[in-house]
Measured scan of single mutants.
Amino acid sequence: SEHYTFDGEEQAIRFMRDMEAKNLKYELQIHNGKYIIQVD
């Protein structure tokens, strides 16, 4: 699995939509205002 970190919500949402379009599962965590997305 890989981790991707985003500072902004818009970037994170765009990335998650992209993952959904590719049928990839992901998990979102928010730490200290950063959006951390783990992709299986």
Rank of each mutant, 00 (worst) to 15 (best):
G8D: 15
E9T: 05
V39R: 03
D40H: 15
E2T: 14
M19G: 02
E9Y: 14
K25A: 09
E10V: 06
A12S: 02
E2I: 15
L28D: 01
I13H: 09
L28P: 01
E20P: 01
H3G: 07
G33T: 03
Q29D: 05
E9W: 15
Q38N: 10
E27S: 14
H3Y: 15
F15G: 00
F6V: 02
L24V: 12
E20D: 13
H31F: 12
S1T: 12
E2C: 15
Y26V: 13
I30T: 05
Q38T: 15
I30A: 03
K25T: 10
E27H: 13
F15I: 02
H3N: 10
D40T: 14
I37W: 01
D7K: 05
Q11C: 12
F6R: 00
R14T: 08
D18V: 10
H31K: 13
E27M: 12
D7M: 08
M16R: 01
Y4C: 06
E20H: 06
N23F: 07
E9H: 09
R17P: 00
T5E: 12
Y4E: 02
F15R: 01
E2Y: 15
M16H: 00
K22Q: 11
M19V: 06
N32V: 04
D18L: 14
T5M: 11
D40M: 15
G33R: 03
A21L: 11
T5F: 11
Q29C: 10
A12H: 01
L24P: 01
M19P: 00
G8Y: 14
M16W: 02
T5W: 10
Q11N: 07
G8I: 14
N32C: 12
K34R: 09
I30N: 03
N23A: 07
L28Y: 09
I36F: 10
Q38H: 14
Y26G: 04
M16D: 00
G33F: 03
F6E: 01
E9D: 04
D7C: 12
E2R: 15
R14E: 12
R14W: 08
N32L: 07
M19W: 03
Y35L: 03
E9M: 12
K25M: 07
Y4R: 04
M16P: 00
I13P: 00
A21P: 02
L28M: 10
Q29N: 09
E27V: 14
I37K: 00
E9R: 10
H31Q: 12
S1P: 12
Y26I: 07
M19Q: 04
T5I: 14
G8C: 15
I37S: 00
N23T: 04
K34G: 02
T5Q: 08
D18G: 05
N32T: 03
R17A: 11
Q38I: 15
F6H: 00
R17H: 09
I36Y: 12
Q11V: 06
F6C: 07
L24N: 04
Y35P: 00
L24Q: 08
K22I: 08
E2A: 13
N32W: 05
M16K: 01
Q29M: 12
Y35Q: 01
I30K: 05
V39L: 09
G33Y: 03
N32E: 10
Y4V: 05
A21D: 09
Q11F: 07
N32F: 07
D40Q: 14
Y26L: 05
Y35H: 02
Q38G: 05
H3A: 12
N32D: 11
K34S: 06
I37L: 06
E20I: 08
Q11H: 07
G8F: 14
L24R: 11
T5N: 04
G33W: 02
Y35S: 00
L28S: 03
K25E: 05
Y26T: 08
I36V: 10
Q38K: 15
Q11K: 05
F15E: 01
M16N: 00
E10I: 06
Y26K: 00
A21C: 09
I13F: 11
T5K: 06
I30W: 05
H3M: 14
E9Q: 08
R17W: 07
L24Y: 09
E27I: 14
A21I: 08
V39N: 02
E27G: 06
V39K: 03
G33L: 03
K25N: 08
I13M: 12
M19S: 03
V39M: 08
G8R: 13
